[in-house]
C-alpha cells in the first residue's frame, strides 16, 4: 500500500468502514511506515477528543493584524525614501564629476631651453609631452615628464604639468601632493594655477565644500585666475 492511499483510508479504518483485505494491507503498512503511523495516531487522538481545539485568535496574531498594514506602509515609505536619496546622491555625483572636468592650462614654448644642462633635449621632450596633453593623452605625457632627464631638471613648470597629468589620470592624491608643494614654495609662476587646480583635486576627492572654499579663496585674490575660480564657485553652488 502506498502512503497516499493509506492517508485516504485513515478515517475509514478508525470508523471501521474499511473492507477486510484493505484493512490488513493498511495495518501492515502502519507497522512499516513511521510517518503514516503518526498520521493515524493524530487522527485517532482527534477522533477520541483527546485534544482541545480552541477557536480564539492568539493575541499576537491580533497585534500582527493591526500592525501589519502599518509595517508594510512604513517599509514602503522607507524604500521610496531610500530610492529617492540614492537617485539624488547619484545625480550629485554625476554633476560633481561634470564640473570637475578641467581645461588643460596653456604653456609657453622655449622656456626650458634656458636650463644649463641638456636644455634643448628637455625642451624637445617637454614639447612632445604638451602635445600629448593637448590631446588629453595623460599617460604618455606623464611618461615623458617623469623620464630621467626631466626629473633631474626639477623645474616647477615640469612639476606643475606632471600634477595636471595625474589629475587627468584620476590620481587626485598624487596631483594634490605636487600642487601643495608648489603652493608651499610660492613660486609666482605657478602659485595661482596650483591653487586653482588644487580645487579640482578636492572635487575629484568628493570634498565639495573644501573645493568651494579653495575656489572662493582664489576668487577673492588679486589673481589672473580669480574670474575662473569665481565661475567654479557658482557652478558648485548650483549643484547644492
Amino acid at each position: 500500500m502506498r502512503c497516499n492511499e493509506f492517508q485516504n483510508l485513515i478515517d475509514a479504518y478508525l470508523q471501521e468502514t474499511i473492507d477486510e483485505p484493505r484493512r490488513e494491507n493498511f495495518e501492515e503498512h502502519f507497522f512499516q511506515c513511521r510517518k503514516c503511523f503518526l498520521g493515524l495516531k493524530l487522527n485517532e487522538a482527534l477522533q477520541n477528543k483527546d485534544v482541545r481545539i480552541t477557536l480564539e485568535e492568539k493575541p499576537r496574531v491580533f497585534v500582527l493584524k493591526l500592525f501589519k498594514p502599518l509595517l508594510v506602509m512604513s517599509s514602503l515609505f522607507l524604500l521610496i525614501l531610500f530610492s529617492v536619496l540614492l537617485v539624488q546622491q547619484k545625480r550629485q555625483t554625476r554633476l560633481l564629476l561634470e564640473i570637475s572636468a578641467f581645461e588643460i592650462p596653456p604653456y609657453h614654448q622655449g622656456e626650458l631651453r634656458s636650463i644649463p644642462e641638456n636644455g634643448a633635449a628637455i625642451e624637445a621632450k617637454f614639447s612632445q609631452a604638451m602635445k600629448y596633453l593637448q590631446e588629453r593623452k595623460f599617460r604618455p605625457a606623464l611618461n615623458l615628464l617623469e623620464g630621467p632627464l626631466m626629473e633631474e631638471a626639477a623645474y616647477p613648470k615640469i612639476e606643475f604639468f606632471r600634477a595636471i597629468c595625474y589629475l587627468g589620470e584620476d590620481e587626485a592624491e598624487k596631483a594634490g601632493e605636487i600642487f601643495d608643494a608648489i603652493i608651499r614654495a610660492m613660486d609666482p609662476a605657478y602659485f595661482d594655477d596650483a591653487l586653482y587646480y588644487k580645487g579640482f583635486v578636492l572635487l575629484r576627492q568628493g570634498q565639495k565644500q573644501a573645493a568651494r572654499d579653495q575656489f572662493e579663496k582664489l576668487a577673492g585674490m588679486l589673481s589672473p585666475m580669480s574670474m575662473k575660480a569665481g565661475a567654479m564657485v557658482q557652478k558648485i553652488e548650483a549643484i547644492e
Binding site: K41, L42, A45, D50, V51, R52, I53, T54, L55, E57
Partner: peptide, 19 residues
C-alpha cells in the same frame, strides 16, 4: 505525550483549519 504536542501545535494553525 502526543496529545500534549497536538494541543500545542493546533494553536498555531490558521483559524479556518482549527474551525
Amino acid at each position: 505525550k502526543l496529545s500534549q504536542v497536538l494541543n500545542l501545535l493546533i494553536k498555531d494553525l490558521p483559524q479556518i483549519d482549527r474551525l
